[in-house]
Computed example of a mutant assay.
Amino acid sequence: MASWPYNTENWQRLRKRKLSLDPFCYPCSLRGRHVVASTVDHVKAIADGGPAFPALSGLMSMCARCHNEKTNALDRPDRHGSGRRFKGFDLAGNPIDPADAWHGGSDHHGEGSPAGPAPTSRTDILLNRGGKKWG
């Protein structure tokens, strides 16, 4: 286990509470999968000015695989990550990373748009190309 704050009783209680309230991996759920979470991650990294002990809404339940991918992509620039918080697409084919430009996000550490994709989705573009209905 890493050092402060992860080695404190406060963190262990916060982690246990988050996993009990949100037992499934958040990124996997965006992909339509139900994978049991084993890790709790800060939505805004401590290194980026996030609080060490945020409210539960400032934490995210994740499986080890998703946590490792997110950490390598964003928190370890020496590893030349993708810059995406979450890799993959939802069942409609849209990127699951809320900070993706598709959702109106502007940077890889931002929150993106909680409302989801812009009003014109990829499906709308394909079905209504140039004002003509397809299909």
Results as ranks from 00 to 15, higher is better:
P98W: 00
P98R: 09
P98K: 05
P98A: 09
A99D: 08
A99L: 07
A99M: 06
A99W: 09
A99I: 04
A99H: 05
A99C: 11
A99P: 10
A99R: 06
D100Y: 03
D100R: 01
D100P: 04
D100Q: 01
D100I: 01
D100C: 09
D100S: 15
A101Q: 06
A101G: 05
A101P: 13
A101V: 10
W102I: 00
W102L: 06
H103R: 14
H103A: 07
H103S: 06
H103P: 05
H103N: 14
G104D: 09
G104Y: 04
G104N: 07
G104V: 10
G104L: 11
G104S: 07
G104Q: 08
G104A: 09
G104T: 06
G105H: 05
G105R: 06
G105E: 06
G105Y: 07
G105D: 03
G105S: 07
G105M: 06
S106I: 14
S106D: 10
S106E: 14
D107S: 15
D107P: 07
D107A: 10
D107R: 12
D107C: 15
H108W: 13
H108E: 10
H108D: 13
H108K: 14
H108Y: 11
H108P: 12
H109C: 04
H109I: 08
H109V: 08
H109Y: 15
H109N: 12
G110E: 08
E111F: 07
E111M: 09
G112Q: 02
G112S: 02
G112K: 01
G112D: 02
G112I: 00
G112H: 00
G112T: 02
G112M: 00
S113Y: 09
P114S: 13
P114V: 10
P114A: 12
P114N: 07
A115M: 12
A115H: 14
A115Q: 14
A115F: 13
G116F: 14
G116T: 12
P117R: 11
A118P: 02
A118T: 14
A118F: 11
A118M: 13
P119L: 04
P119A: 09
P119M: 03
T120S: 12
T120F: 12
S121P: 02
S121N: 03
S121Q: 06
S121F: 05
S121D: 07
R122V: 04
R122K: 11
R122Y: 01
T123Q: 04
T123D: 03
T123N: 00
T123G: 00
T123F: 02
D124N: 15
D124Q: 15
D124C: 14
D124T: 13
D124H: 15
D124G: 11
I125H: 03
I125R: 08
I125D: 01
I125S: 00
L126G: 06
L126E: 12
L126A: 13
L126T: 02
L126Y: 03
L126F: 11
L127M: 11
L127Q: 05
N128D: 09
N128Q: 05
N128L: 05
N128H: 13
R129I: 10
R129G: 00
R129C: 04
G130P: 00
G130D: 15
G130M: 01
G130E: 10
G130I: 01
G130R: 08
G130Q: 08
